[in-house]
Amino acid sequence: MIHDSKLRGKDIVTSILFFILGVYILIEAFQMPLKDTYAGVVSKWYVSPALLPIIIGVSMILIAVVILLHAVKNGGVQALKESFAALRGSKVLSDGNIRYAAVLIPLLSLVYINLRIVDFYLAIVLYLGFTIPVFYLESDSIRRKAVYFYFFEMLILLVLRITKLSVVLDRVFYYFVDSIALIMIILLLVLFIREIKKSEQRELYRQKFRQAMVMSWVTPLFIVIIFRYMLRVPLPKEGAVVNLFSMIYYLVR
C-alpha cells in the first residue's frame, strides 16, 4: 500500500469514479419496471428488480462522498497535485513500465487472442516461454527487446483474430495458425539465445534460461494431460499438439 497522504490524493480520484458508477447504477435502475406488472408478478415498488440496485446506487454515492470529504480534509488535493507533477516528469517506456507491460501483454493476448485461435498447448507455451525467461533472467535490456518483439508477434495474432483471417487460414491447412504460433515460439527462442550470447553474464543466464525452458515446455504438458484426459475438460481450442496427444491417448487406451 502507498503512503498515507499520497493515498488521500488517489482517494479523490477513486471516490469520484465510484460516485459516477453510483449515478450510472441509479440511471439504469430507474429504467427498470417499477410499477407495471412484469412476468406475471404484480409489481409494486418492493417487488421491482430495481429495488436493490437503487439501494446500492444511493449507498455508493453516499460512501463515495464520505471518502471524498475525508480525503480533501486530509491533504488529498495537495497530494493529487504532486502526483500529477510527478507524472509529467516520468517516461512512458521506463524500465518499470516495461516490466508492467511484460506481465500484461502476454496475459491479455493469451486470454483475448490465443486461447481461441491457437492450440491450447502451444498457446500456453507461447505465454510461459516469454513470461518465465523475461522475469527469471532479470535483465532490463533483454526484457526490453523481448517485450518489443513479443508485442509485434501478438499484433499479428490480434489481426488474425479480429479479421477472422485465422478461420480462413485454418481452412487452407488445418493447423495453419498453430504453425504460425510455433514459428513465433521458435523465433522468440532464437531471440533469447542471441541476447544471452551477447550479454556479460552468459553462463548464469544460459543456466537460468535452460530451467525456464524446461518449465515452459513441460508444465503445459502436465496441464493438458491432467485437465484433458483425467478431468476430461474439453479445451478451448484443440489443435495440432492436443490432437496429437488425443491420438496417442486413444491408441494407448
Binding site: F18, L21, I25, E28, M32, P33, Y38, A39, V41, V47, P49, L52, P53, I56, S59, M60, I63, A64, I67
Partner: peptide, 24 residues
C-alpha cells in the same frame, strides 16, 4: 463497505432471479 456494494452491484448483473428481468 464501498467494495461490498461494488460486489453487490456485480451480482445484480444478469437476469434477476424472480422475474427474469435483464439488468446491466
Amino acid at each position: 463497505w464501498i467494495m461490498g456494494f461494488l460486489g453487490l452491484f456485480l451480482a445484480m448483473v444478469g437476469r434477476d432471479q424472480l422475474q427474469v428481468y435483464p439488468r446491466y
